[in-house]
Structures are given as C-alpha cells and as structure tokens.
Design a protein around this nucleic acid. Structure first.
Lengths: 188, 188
DNA sequence: CGAGGCCTTGACCGCGGTCAATGCCCGTGG
DNA sequence: CCACGGGCATTGACCGCGGTCAAGGCCTCG
C-alpha cells in the first residue's frame, strides 16, 4: 500500500503549476457537522471530497446489517466509486464521523479539466490503482485472517481508528458483530 | 460490472488505427499447455496476457490453504496487479487450467507506448476501473452472501466456470472448503 | 486390474452470530 | 445536585454454518 502512496506522491511533485492552479480553481472548501451526510443513499455521487480534517465513513445497508466499507481521514479522498464513475444512484452512504472540512470538486468540472490537462488522467489512473490495491488487500484480509487477526492488524497499522470511531462501526468494517469485537478486545 | 465493460468497449471503438497498430506491433502470440505457469511465485510480472482462448487461474498460497483469486477466459487480460504495477516479486501464481493461446505484451513496451499514444493511459484507467469495480463486488459478496448464495450467484452469472474448472479451485475461489461446496451442490 | 486424482459423505467441533440482560457514561431537566 | 433516559459497550447462554479429519466411491489412464 505504502508504495502506491509513494507513486502518487512522486507524481504530484511532477505536476506543473498550471495544472495545480486549474484544479484549485474548481475546488470549493466546505464544512460539515458530525452526523451530516456527504452522500445519501440513492443520490448520485457528483463530487469528490478531499478531507482537510476530520473523519468520515462510507457504508451500505445489507439485508440484516449495516456494513462499513471505508473510513476517511485528513488527506484521503472520499467518494462512492460506483456511483461516481457511472453517475448512477449510490447504494453507499457517506457520513461525517466528526466535524469535517473538505475540498469539494465536482466530477463534471474535473472531467472537463482532464481534456485540457492530460496529466490529470494519469493522476486518475494512479488514484484508481491505489484504490484497487487497497481493495485487493482488504479481500486478502477477509480470506486469510481470522476476526482476531484482522482486529490486531487494524490495531497495529491504524491505531488512529480507535480514537474517534465507535466500536460498532469498526466491527462492521472488520466484518464481525459488535459482540464478537467486544470479546476479542476483552481477550487481549 | 457490465456497465464497466461497456465503457471499455465504447472506448475501444474510438481508438484510432495508428494506436491499435502500435499495440499490435509489440504484442506476441504465444501458446501454453494445460498446467503451465504464466507467472511463478516470486517472479516479477513483466507481461500482460490477453487470452484468445482457453482458461487460466490466478492463486496464492495462504498459510493453510491455497486461495484462487481470479479465473480468466477468452477476452480477459491476465496479470498480477501488485507485481505488474510495482514490478516486485509476485505472491500470486498464474496457471493454465486448459491449453491456452494468448497475446503477450511486455509492460516495458506498453509503458513506452503510453508516452507516444496518450489514449493508452485512458485505456489503462478504464481497465483499472473495471478491476476495482470487480474487486468491490467480490468484497460485497463475501460480506453479505452466505456460502450457498455465493455458489448460486456464480452458477447463474458464470455457468461456464463449471465446465472446465475443478471443484477444488471453484471452492477456493468462493472462499469455502471443497467439502462444503460438495454439500451445497448435493443440497440443490 | 491397480493406482492416483477428484469428489462425496459422515462425524465432530469451534468460531463467530444472535438474543437478551446488564453495565457504564453522559447530557438534560426537575 | 441528583434522577432519569438514551446510546454504546460488555457479558452470558445458546446455536448454526462451515471447517477439519477420515473413510469411501468413482473415474481415467497406464
């Protein structure tokens, strides 16, 4: 994962002033309150949200349970992949875990910019590669790690999760029930 | 998923002759025998394999079990995402399920071509989007479907899997033991 | 005919889920 | 300042899905 971030960062350094400026011109700073929704179920995801500070989460409603698919922290970009790319109603919801400040860029504007600034296509590619690599790792975790191992891994690699986020949401992110998570924590 | 294929196909139709020609010039047709490896564990994935006919699979060795991550059929492109992008030794192995014919393109050549033919970057983006969407769906399946439901879904959406592929491999693809798969099949 | 690969079937077990009761923390209002 | 209530986490009892181990069946191929 880290290597993908590096690739992305290296690329950012090669971005010319003009391109950066163009992107900044179409981005709008917004703030949200804890509990606000960045994206509702059924809404089309027309914006990407680049977090300046605060925490957000993305989740969807399974038949029986709510499943959290991703958490976002400062520096992350939040969007519903499917809805954003295909511009169709979102199954996923994005919600503020804390008060939030974001840079908000409309997809329409960004797509237009890509035509004038082809480097943004390469950026998009790197960003998507990062997301795919992240998904691959998550899939790996579910396939080979037990509930306890997944918890341990998250604990070590991303302790920040445990400061601001409810255990209920962490449990659903780890693919286990709140009760099981509680027992795992008691046992360690 | 189908919508992503459509996007990709629509894009392919807009590709100019010159770009297509350039790609064809660097691709090499190769054949493999059932059981041959397209990529060994620890090897760096330097090629993408576009299947003309036959079936291949990608898998890795967990601590206790072997996990199949993907099957490839005619028209699919086979590569180990991590190893190909970062050019580092692969955890994954790619193996021929049947005799195979492929168009083989070296990553070096393709990356060079991307500089002369920027449309290939857009192609790469669409391809990666498709893969990410596929991963998202797979993750969804593991999170909300039971073993039986995953089997049913595969059965309905991809019956071709059950012609040439061993149940052992299908089981490991579905994330269940061979015995459980056997019982599910008996029960239906 | 025998051997090996693949799948099936049975017996057993444990991880993690569900349901329900209890505990704990904190904000609000009397 | 305390009492109450609601939201969140913990704990206990129970259960079922799917895993593991082992035996047996059934091809195919030499």
């Amino acid at each position: 994962m880290d290597l993908y971030y590096q690739k992305l960062e290296q690329f950012m350094e090669t971005l010319d002033e003009e391109t950066m400026r163009a992107v900044e011109n179409v981005s709008v700073k917004k703030t949200f309150k804890k509990g606000d929704l960045l994206l509702e179920q059924g809404e089309i995801c027309k914006y990407s949200f680049s977090l300046i500070n605060g925490v957000a989460r993305k989740f969807y409603y399974g038949q029986k349970k709510v499943i959290t698919t991703e958490f976002y922290f400062a520096g992350d970009v939040a969007l519903s992949f499917n809805s954003y790319l295909l511009q169709k109603p979102s199954e996923e919801v994005m919600e503020c875990v804390t008060d939030l400040t974001v840079e908000c860029i409309s997809r329409d504007n960004f797509e237009k910019l890509k035509q004038s600034f082809p480097k943004l296509i390469a950026y998009d590619l790197l960003f998507t590669e990062l997301y795919a690599a992240w998904l691959e790792e998550r899939l790996f975790d579910f396939n080979v790690l037990s509930a306890t191992e997944r918890y341990r891994k998250l604990m070590h690699k991303s302790p920040q999760y445990f400061h601001q986020i409810k255990l209920t949401h962490i449990a659903s992110y780890l693919g286990i029930s709140l009760e099981t998570l509680s027992r795992i924590r008691a046992r360690i």
